[in-house]
Simulated scan of single mutants.
Amino acid sequence: MMQVVTRIFAVNIVLGLLALASILWSGPAVQVFALAGGAALVAWLLYIFAKGRPSAA
């Protein structure tokens, strides 16, 4: 359970930093990088959650 909370917290921190970067540097390259980076990060998180925990045998 703590692993889930830790991953979500870490992703939220990075998403916040990407949002801050897109505000501070409003160039198109930064906007595209922030959008692509955020999408990839959320996709990774959803993939990890969809895989589920390995069962203890």
Results as ranks from 00 to 15, higher is better:
2 M>Q: 11
2 M>H: 10
3 Q>T: 08
3 Q>P: 02
3 Q>M: 11
3 Q>K: 09
4 V>H: 13
4 V>M: 12
5 V>I: 11
5 V>E: 13
6 T>D: 11
6 T>L: 13
8 I>L: 13
8 I>W: 08
9 F>Q: 15
9 F>E: 14
11 V>G: 03
12 N>F: 14
12 N>Q: 14
14 V>T: 07
15 L>D: 03
16 G>I: 07
16 G>T: 01
16 G>L: 08
16 G>H: 04
17 L>Q: 12
17 L>P: 03
17 L>I: 07
17 L>F: 12
19 A>L: 14
19 A>Q: 15
19 A>D: 14
20 L>T: 07
21 A>F: 09
22 S>P: 00
22 S>G: 02
22 S>N: 05
22 S>C: 04
23 I>M: 06
23 I>K: 07
23 I>F: 04
23 I>P: 00
24 L>D: 10
25 W>G: 00
25 W>M: 09
26 S>V: 04
26 S>F: 08
26 S>K: 14
27 G>K: 01
28 P>R: 08
29 A>D: 05
30 V>L: 02
31 Q>M: 06
31 Q>S: 07
31 Q>R: 10
32 V>M: 07
33 F>D: 04
33 F>W: 06
33 F>S: 09
34 A>R: 03
34 A>T: 08
35 L>K: 10
36 A>V: 12
38 G>T: 06
38 G>C: 04
38 G>Y: 02
38 G>Q: 12
38 G>W: 05
40 A>R: 03
40 A>I: 04
41 L>A: 07
41 L>N: 02
41 L>Y: 03
43 A>N: 05
43 A>K: 06
44 W>M: 03
44 W>G: 00
44 W>D: 09
45 L>R: 01
45 L>K: 09
46 L>K: 04
46 L>T: 01
46 L>V: 14
47 Y>G: 00
49 F>N: 15
49 F>V: 14
50 A>R: 15
50 A>I: 08
51 K>A: 00
52 G>P: 00
53 R>L: 13
53 R>D: 15
53 R>F: 12
54 P>Y: 06
55 S>E: 09
55 S>Q: 15
55 S>T: 15
56 A>K: 12
56 A>W: 08
56 A>S: 10
56 A>M: 07
56 A>L: 11
57 A>K: 14
57 A>F: 12
